[in-house]
Design a protein around this nucleic acid. Sequence first.
DNA 1: GACGCGGATCGAAACGTTTCGCAAAACGTA
DNA 2: TACGTTTTGCGAAACGTTTCGATCCGCGTC
Lengths: 343, 343
Amino acid sequence: MTSLRDVAERAQVAVSTVSAALNGTRPVKAETKRRIERAAAELGYRPNLLARGLVSKRTRILALLFPPPGSGFGLTEMQFATGAAEAAAELGYHLLLSPESADPVEELRYLTGMGLVDGVLLMEVRLADERTDFLLESGTPFAMIGRTREPGSLDYADIDFARTARDAVAHLAGLGHRAIALLNHSTGAYSPGYGPAVRAGEEFAAAAREAGLWYAGDVRADTAGEGRLAFERLMAEHPEVTAVAAMSDQAAVGVLQAVEERGWRVPGDLSLLLASASARVAEMFRPRLTTLEPPGAELGRLGARMLIDRLESPGSPPAQRLVPCRLVIGDSSAPPRGSGAAR
Amino acid sequence: MTSLRDVAERAQVAVSTVSAALNGTRPVKAETKRRIERAAAELGYRPNLLARGLVSKRTRILALLFPPPGSGFGLTEMQFATGAAEAAAELGYHLLLSPESADPVEELRYLTGMGLVDGVLLMEVRLADERTDFLLESGTPFAMIGRTREPGSLDYADIDFARTARDAVAHLAGLGHRAIALLNHSTGAYSPGYGPAVRAGEEFAAAAREAGLWYAGDVRADTAGEGRLAFERLMAEHPEVTAVAAMSDQAAVGVLQAVEERGWRVPGDLSLLLASASARVAEMFRPRLTTLEPPGAELGRLGARMLIDRLESPGSPPAQRLVPCRLVIGDSSAPPRGSGAAR
DNA sequence: GACGCGGATCGAAACGTTTCGCAAAACGTA
DNA sequence: TACGTTTTGCGAAACGTTTCGATCCGCGTC
């Protein structure tokens, strides 16, 4: 491993001069600089990040905490990670992928105490999240993908649920639907206060109200089995519902089962929207589902970028970005049954 | 940030003694040790990884290179990452998620040159892979998820394609199929020599031969459109084929389209297997597809573990593990058309 | 009572950087 | 020529560890 000293020797200057020349920390005579750069290139010199980090207290490493598997870790969550890693790499940073153990706060204490990471990127943020409390208290810079209930002046990138819900509702209302339902995540599978579930619920309700649509909100399912039952119950209690938006792809599978069982067809008898699933997933369904595709990679990129901004200019105003899901129209949404148009 | 020196002061001993006591590097009198440990706990001391790494030349950080998005990065690939991160964490290591740029070797040179990572975990390995050449030459420890054509004494964890193909073929043969086809990845989308494509092709052919089945191997598709066309062509040329295994979920979508267009049903008229897709994905299809679920998380875990073994006992014999995909039987495989059994 | 020995602890050096006060050289001006 | 100013480069210290030879102490032995 070639060090700054080797370069200094070869270029016939002092170590500190090499450092200055290579980093542009202070002016170095053009000719000397050239000589140093040549020596560095010839020796294939690469600065040692550890030594640099030790003195500068900056490692240019970001940690991304990811929740234990099973808690709905899908394609979208992976896009957070790859998007963040890419944005970080573009800006000269690295991303550490840290699995979250049973005690996330202890995990964070450990992670930040080592001096290894400059900042933390949080995902799967809950409305009240102990992790943010710890990070605030410990003074560790961080940004969130998702957000707490009162993000105050914290940095975050999240889905624009308000906009997304209104787009979806407008799509359905435009087709002629008058009564819709949101098949939300079940409270059991996710810790209570799981942001997306709560916000989707609130915003779909608001959007439906604004559009003058009847709305059933408290229908919940996360598995195919649950989805089937939930849909049956919904139809029993509210037969007027002609369109359903499902938050979970698994639950959508159950709805399709139930639809088939009663001899119905999608979209003739029921319009089915998939909320929070990539178009790639929606394509696998028959018929191709209309979907609200979450901007996973973009949120990851934004999160990483705002964290880096925070690190490099700590005083700047908080960055808070909301990005709507993209409505990708498939073959599962059509005018409601009995409207005469499609059958 | 509390340092070794603070602990030493509080415990009234020398810095080096604290280091020895905390790491067990050399014997320290029980009472002294207790005193030191108490002081460390009271101060909330955490060793600084950078300083430690600087002298020990070991950071306990592993890098996982992941390919640029678009090259078929799905749920399985993500499981490599999370599995590896978890296994690493269990053993006290960290995982750096590194996006691979256009020049992977330069990327590696950079990554390993900084002294930041102890070893590298490679995925999406090709049969002839320049990255392994570089890593071997530079003496960087590494392990592969996947493998080159001649892995020699390299460490790897890969899918057991031979076993997987035989399981799949046995399943189909047992149902009565006599002629099958593998809908492989198209050569265009993947760099030539993409291991899984080549090995799946070879092993399915071998398994079919052994089972006495007629086999069509050179059918390729990676998108729905390609899948539809490929299937149509297959049926035109080889109408005797009654079962298809698709390597790509997208291609399977195309096959289902084509099946529907000709008024057929799955599995009555065609048995369709999904190779290399998680059961969760297979469930979204109607009917639920029979699938060969790759052991993504396990391969990730194995890869991380063998890399760590290599780091901690460099002389140990190479670890090479093959794990078969799990055959998850869905509703898409049944006796062949015309067999009288199912219709 | 001197000597040697082993266990326990200490102190200093080293890892590869950055940072900073200072000295040397170069230049312009009186 | 002498002096002040700017430019350029140097050397030492510091970051928080690990490592290793040196030192100190108590004890048994002859």
